[in-house]
Design a protein around this nucleic acid. Structure first.
Length: 290
DNA sequence: AACCAGTGCAACCGCACACGC
DNA sequence: TGCGTGTGCGGTTGCACTGGT
């Protein structure tokens, strides 16, 4: 697909920092007409910006529910924990931090927490191993350097999830050592998170996970997760049914808007009685997810 | 006071996916 | 079915600011 047509450089569009007047125009327009149809917004709002830029400005800065100011220690702790579970899924992490944007969290991580994590890295146990030794001790590589999950007496081949880490794909992980578990690249390569595990398991072994609250969260034939909506009384769910569309995007919707984290973890524990080697991972998560 | 390196953050970029036609 | 569009996402860049020398 590539570059969106609305973002062509040769249209005399403004670039760079937004002015107060531009902010006001955009805010006023969205207050009246609402979000969506971003491509039309610049013209209708009298802005010399591409729609994509307008969307970004609104979502990351102008939205009224944006929480400005420093990240609190509680938020920081949550970010760290969620990052250990999810990796660089900034939107997922942001979904658990009301008022914070994925961009803000991403910046905070890259500028502050990544360095701190690197500095605090223990020589004996990695952060992941401290969470649950099962996670890393059971990940090996086959002869083709593909990650292999070793659980019980079964080997589960772990395909690299598409789009998990562009940096890893393009070899742009120079900022991090390969052994650094806190780095985005190594996170995707060595630390299969919960969702990734669920995605990568074969259907026969992990066919159906039933989510309470009336929704099914399952692995489909192709190994991707899919969500089947059974309820109509969850506005958050229905609102997001046509948004995003990636498997983890759907997980995000369900997770961030449908269930509280506490319930999610305890429900997962109940759900996982048949998950074999993966159950311990989920149970391990129960110890540290707030 | 001037310079420079480091830092934080807003904005940009390219890609992926869903959806409608 | 193929294509264009709209949207979301993660990675990267650019620049203002700050502190040290």
């Amino acid at each position: 697909m590539g570059r969106s047509p609305c973002c062509s450089k040769d249209e005399g569009l403004n670039r760079g920092a937004w002015t107060a007047d531009e902010d006001k125009r955009l805010t006023d327009y969205i207050k009246v007409h609402g979000e969506g149809k971003w491509r039309n917004i610049p013209k209708r709002a009298g802005l010399k910006r591409c729609g994509k830029s307008c969307r970004l400005r609104w979502l990351n800065y102008l939205r009224p529910d944006i929480k400005r100011g420093n990240i609190t220690s509680d938020e920081e702790d949550l970010i760290i924990r969620l990052h250990r579970l999810l990796g660089n899924r900034w939107s997922l992490i942001a979904g658990r931090l009301p008022g914070r944007t994925d961009n803000e969290i991403k910046n905070y991580w890259n500028s502050t927490l990544a360095k701190r994590e690197q500095g605090e890295k223990k020589p004996s146990l990695s952060a992941t191993e401290k969470i649950n030794p099962m996670v890393t001790s059971s990940i090996m590589q086959d002869e083709n350097q593909n990650p292999v999950l070793v659980g019980d007496s079964t080997l589960h081949h772990m395909e690299q999830p598409s789009g998990t880490s562009e940096a890893a794909k393009s070899g742009q992980s120079s900022e991090y050592e390969s052994s650094d578990v806190s780095s985005p690249a190594s996170m995707s390569r060595e630390e299969p998170n919960l969702e990734q595990l669920m995605v990568d398991c074969t259907v026969g072994e992990l066919d159906l996970v039933e989510i309470p609250d009336g929704s099914d969260f399952r692995l489909n034939e192709s190994g991707n997760t899919s969500q089947v909506m059974n309820t109509v009384d969850n506005e958050g769910m229905s609102k997001n049914e046509n948004v995003g569309g990636t498997s983890y995007g759907q997980a995000h919707n369900w997770w961030s808007e449908g269930l509280e984290m506490d319930n999610w973890v305890s429900d997962l524990a109940e759900m996982t009685s048949g998950l074999g080697p993966f159950a311990s991972i989920l149970y391990g998560a129960e110890d540290w997810i707030p």
